[in-house]
């Protein structure tokens, strides 16, 4: 009777090395986690909000005649914000589905 291939289990590509230098698969292999991506996306939304804010302030102060540019910046801020809210809804939805899972 040949010995059981116990050592082979550790070499399995699905095994997570305990205390290993490699990051776990769940945080992504490119070195950036989902949370990082989300953080970056939110910063982008924040930037477009600030841009719209600045444009509006400039227009109100009479520093720029760029009426349509202001309106477009506002629209852009609106679209990016709504995209972020949609993504958040999806993430929360997925989280709740996982939490409601029967064990």
């Amino acid at each position: 009777m040949s010995p059981l291939p116990i050592s082979g289990v550790g070499a399995s590509p699905w095994a997570t090395p305990v205390g290993g230098t490699q990051a776990p698969r769940s945080t992504g292999q490119g070195g950036r986690s989902f949370a990082d991506t989300l953080q970056q996306a939110m910063e982008g939304v924040d930037q477009s909000q600030h841009r719209a804010d600045d444009k509006l302030a400039e227009l109100a102060a009479g520093q720029t005649p760029d009426l349509h540019g202001t309106m477009i910046a506002l629209q852009e801020a609106d679209i990016t914000l709504r995209t972020m809210v949609s993504v958040r809804d999806k993430v929360v939805d997925a989280y709740q589905q996982l939490m409601n899972m029967q064990i």
Binding site: P65, D66, H68, G69, I72, Q75, E76, I79, T80
Partner: peptide, 18 residues
């Protein structure tokens, strides 16, 4: 992306304003 379209239109609007 979709928002770059806004940039083109904004330039069109600006040139028409001039």
């Amino acid at each position: 992306n979709l928002l770059d379209t806004l940039q083109i239109s904004a330039s069109g609007l600006t040139s028409q304003r001039v």
